[in-house]
Design a protein around this nucleic acid. Structure first.
Lengths: 203, 203
DNA sequence: GGAGGAGATGACTGTTTAGTCAAGTTCGAG
DNA sequence: CTCGAACTTGACTAAACAGTCATCTCCTCC
């Protein structure tokens, strides 16, 4: 990493600090100090604090995307995709807890619910990523209905409800630092879809 | 309201401003300006910004509590309580939208997920109120299981999951200003409890 | 009417904030 | 060696920030 060394450190510092507290509570100075980068360098790489945060959101998403692509692979039966995703939530936050000492939930969701309309660019990026995530669910539900393994209904509305449950569980887990709650997600998730449990082949 | 006139305006201004944006984005000056109260008066009534916010949380809760007490009245069949609450979510946020021009979700939940550990007093108060709300669900679930209208399970864990879904739906509705999502809550809520729909007598 | 307290006021302090800038250093290509 | 571009640096600004304070204005009770 010769090129973008300080830049990368700034991005990582922003992710660490904002994720563990909040957008509004983290200052440029704090990010610089953690990244061991001077103020002038910050503004060499980024036009503003918001510019860095948008970049941080993109960077973080680019690390999650391949994982989601694998979980929601079209070569996998649609219900098995959901089963893997439900299980992934708990596993992933377990890793987060080991690294940050605390369950932190979803990075861009935490930012998105804090920055409603305030800094347009940040809010727009957070919403964009939330929508991208929801589309994984939507596709899996549509595929499941197409193959008849899930009762027919509006897949967009169903994905919205399921997504609300997932983000709610992640946020509650974050607030109460409660990993156990996420381990309940698979059970309740299937119920919310109108099913008693996961398909036999997916367990 | 002879006593506490300016004080009340400060509390209301804090609720309005923080609810429509966020804790971190609202300054004491902004609150004072909206309340038409001078800085000195602010600190005559409140020891600090956090002190006002804690008071605002309590004040707001005290307006919601009688409504919840009515909805979750023990003289009502437990499943009917849940049905009423599910329906209430959409109605209430409809009112909020009319008043504030936007769906805002749950006030103390928005603050609670933003202020994780930072200002101890604010975070503690927000968590206290979240817990109080969750207990309404817990009691209803316990009563429903006791009378056999809901399959037996751990009511605490079930309440956590149901509460995660409700807060998730409120937050999604807030972020996307989407009232329609909340209107789906009754349907998905019953599913998540392992029921096909509300009891006949409750509809 | 006078004493005293609750409340109002605006100017004030010191700190933190985001963002700027001119003068540096480093380093690879020509 | 030299030139320029990428990068670094620390001092700087102006605004916003939370919080303070002496002084004033009421209103109430004696």
């Amino acid at each position: 990493m010769s090129r973008g060394d300080a830049r990368d450190r700034l991005i990582q510092a922003a992710i660490d600090l904002i994720w563990t507290s909040s957008y509004g509570a983290v200052s440029v100075d704090a990010i610089c100090e953690r990244a061991q980068v001077r103020k002038g360098s910050f503004y060499h790489f980024f036009a503003s604090k918001d510019d860095l945060v948008v970049t941080a959101l993109d960077t973080h998403w680019s690390t999650r995307r391949p994982v989601l692509d694998e979980i929601f692979s079209a070569s996998r039966p649609p219900l098995q995709r959901l089963q893997r995703y439900f299980a992934h939530l708990g596993e992933r936050q377990g890793e987060v807890r080991e690294r940050y000492g605390r369950v932190l939930g979803c990075f861009h969701h935490a930012i998105g619910s804090e920055c409603l309309q305030k800094p347009t660019a940040v809010a727009a990026k957070a919403q964009e990523l939330s929508l991208a995530l929801r589309r994984y669910l939507e596709t899996a539900l549509r595929d499941a209905q197409a193959e008849g393994s899930l009762p027919a209904s509006d897949p967009v509305a169903s994905a919205k409800s399921l997504f609300a449950f997932v983000t709610g569980a992640l946020t509650q887990a974050r607030v109460h630092d409660d990993l156990e709650l996420l381990r309940q997600v698979p059970r309740t998730g299937w119920l919310a879809l109108g099913m008693a449990g996961p398909p036999e082949s997916a367990a």
